[in-house]
Nucleic acid binder design. Sequence first.
DNA 1: CATGAATGAGATTTCATTCAT
DNA 2: AATGAATGAAATCTCATTCAT
Lengths: 244, 244, 244, 244
Amino acid sequence: MAAETSKDLSMIEQSMVPELTRRGRRSRLALVEAAKRVFGSDGFLNARVLDIATEAGLSHGSFYTYFESKEEIFREVIDAVKVDMTRPVSTATAQEDPYETVLRTNEQYVAGYRRNAALMATFEEVCTFNREMAQYRASIREEYIARNSRAIRRWQALGLADASLDPRYAAIALGAMVDRFVYIWLVLGEELDEKVALETLTRLWIQGLGLKAPTGAGSAAVPASQRRAPGQKRSSRKGESDGK
Amino acid sequence: MAAETSKDLSMIEQSMVPELTRRGRRSRLALVEAAKRVFGSDGFLNARVLDIATEAGLSHGSFYTYFESKEEIFREVIDAVKVDMTRPVSTATAQEDPYETVLRTNEQYVAGYRRNAALMATFEEVCTFNREMAQYRASIREEYIARNSRAIRRWQALGLADASLDPRYAAIALGAMVDRFVYIWLVLGEELDEKVALETLTRLWIQGLGLKAPTGAGSAAVPASQRRAPGQKRSSRKGESDGK
Amino acid sequence: MAAETSKDLSMIEQSMVPELTRRGRRSRLALVEAAKRVFGSDGFLNARVLDIATEAGLSHGSFYTYFESKEEIFREVIDAVKVDMTRPVSTATAQEDPYETVLRTNEQYVAGYRRNAALMATFEEVCTFNREMAQYRASIREEYIARNSRAIRRWQALGLADASLDPRYAAIALGAMVDRFVYIWLVLGEELDEKVALETLTRLWIQGLGLKAPTGAGSAAVPASQRRAPGQKRSSRKGESDGK
Amino acid sequence: MAAETSKDLSMIEQSMVPELTRRGRRSRLALVEAAKRVFGSDGFLNARVLDIATEAGLSHGSFYTYFESKEEIFREVIDAVKVDMTRPVSTATAQEDPYETVLRTNEQYVAGYRRNAALMATFEEVCTFNREMAQYRASIREEYIARNSRAIRRWQALGLADASLDPRYAAIALGAMVDRFVYIWLVLGEELDEKVALETLTRLWIQGLGLKAPTGAGSAAVPASQRRAPGQKRSSRKGESDGK
DNA sequence: CATGAATGAGATTTCATTCAT
DNA sequence: AATGAATGAAATCTCATTCAT
């Protein structure tokens, strides 16, 4: 579900990049931006250092002036994604009712995910075979879980939420629901209506916890025409291999 | 959530492997079994054809007598996984109440996932970069979605479930929840108690849809001692690269 | 000075090369022979795996079927050199007088060195920057030292040799003299007369230890015409870099 | 054996470096001193221009203001070593007897070698693959040979030395002995006692030529405890590769 | 003079797949 | 059928040297 601050991987990086000239900083930045594009469209495995350098308008050897490896620049890219995803968009009013709170949070998560969908796909890719990235993602997930656990516990204490639910387990499950739903939608290309998607997720979340959702006025009615046959439509990804 | 039959990828294979001597069939089978072990412990990228052949007690080159590529044998392995996951364990009594129905289905899904956790991890890995596998998984997902959509629509028609929910969207979301939760648990190694996990998933599912769950008698209380700090513990996977 | 048996590096190798077909053995042998030629003419640093494979009539990837690295095949080449250098040419009659003994030994050493001069040069090259090779050479040297120390001690015990000399120090020094003299001669290309060279080395050795050398009948007289200005003439080495 | 003056390589350099400001001269000197340290500890191949510049407190690019290449600065370093090795330490009394003369010379050689052992190791390294350096070393060796040949011829003329020896061959051999002995000792790390080492070398030299050495009073007796198992111990060299 | 960014040649190594026996 | 030898594409990374500021 929601997003929050955490210790970034970038701390290490940032302390090591101080002494660069203006030109150097420009080149480094160009590499990072190029890496976002290349990783976003080719995935991690298919991305070549040469592609990134070329895309940045640099020679391939220059890459190594700024980064030690493809992994290192990927960490930096992902770190930027994380920062972007967790930027405190709306200073949510704490007084809102649970449904509104969850809805706002989901809206922000979707907005952030949408901005970074291609890179999130690549992040998932890397997490399947790279231990360090998997751990980084686990730490991000843990933040979400901790935050949501606290919210659930609070609602339980107020007698609003189902007390028989284990807050941590519920937080893991509901976080998984939102995260995976959005992945299916924005990465795998399942065509879904944003309004309906958000209302569905939020209502399931709220009702699942035993909280009260607003009566479904005109909420979730969707024209049948918007439903299509499933299947992957990752139009944003070019140059895919067939899995050598 | 639940599992069901579908057109297997294996159909193509099976029609192409008729003329095999007894010895040939034994070798082919040995390769598939070896591939399960190797893919399960090394992932797809790190698995080498040589390893599979050796594990099967065959020479390197013999592999290509039976399979055209690493992808092909992987498809066959995954197909076997799918068959195992969808085997109609309990012929569920249709009269059961929704909570029991969903609980049974989730139990079966977890049991199946547990039997194939290592290969499911590898399946996820491959789906991140291989279009064909991603589509295959999408088709499997679609079966689950279709089936669950129907169940939800039925419950809505009976006045049992929240009519304001779009059945397809809800089915996608709840399916994503179960699938991802189990992945976090059985693949990423989040240590969770099985009973609590199943009860949590089922209750969120049922209540999310506005159905009635049994009052949480002794259901979801978990000793705090069972909760641990998160983080990946995929002990079953050896030889992982760092993602070079 | 002299040569002798020792534990070869080859032991490890040989136990790992048993299961090769006739064709495989032929290829492997071709690689070793090619490596001798390439290392001999290009040195170690300038030799490329590709050159060796090509010289052996194989593709460059095939090299790695038989050897893990340039280092590994070099070890094998050097091991063959060592075996060739230490082959027990003449089972020297123990009764010979010291001068004759030393002369025979030096003759054999020179003969062996001459057969392997190009590779000895490369061996020296590698020993300057590779610890393992340096240690291997040190172990070979130690054999020579041990053997010569014993001989010197024996002669001292018989009252034939200067008792005030430390046998080990003398063995190191005299071994260094022969080894380096031959290197200057056969590797660096100092043009010297073989007969004079051997007599000079032997006489210095014998007299240095205080032993009796035969009166220099017609021994060491060399026409002045045979003496030329020094300077490197390593005609056998092509493709030398200028030390990039 | 001994050391002496010769035509330096540096002549060329010096004539090309006249127009340097005070600051320029300081930078250039800093580079040479830095190069001595870096070449001494890393060898030639492993030494990077970047390391030298950094060690000198200069930027990477500035190196090329003063030197055209790594080779060029190495030549200058080696030239300084040569000058240091051949500095006329003791104004030897010509009247001394041969043993004393040789002993003094060897003492000086050892002292010089000891001051420059790390760089002498690197010099040897470079000579194995760089023609120019090999020739430079050959020219230095030739000086030693010429000088010692003359000495031997003088002693033969005086009836002191074995007339059957060819002076040049003997000079080459005895020079090789001293040079290589000292290399084994000071570069390869063979642990030896200085006094015994010098007496052994000198006695072998003198007696080898048929000259009279002083009766070995307390000369070459060494406590057995000082003798250790051989093997390379080049503790002064860090960052050695394994010869990739 | 100094700087440090940019260049690019070059070599190693892996492994899926093909092929000759 | 089985074997295992042969192939070669591909990608990473290093570092001496050049160059623009």
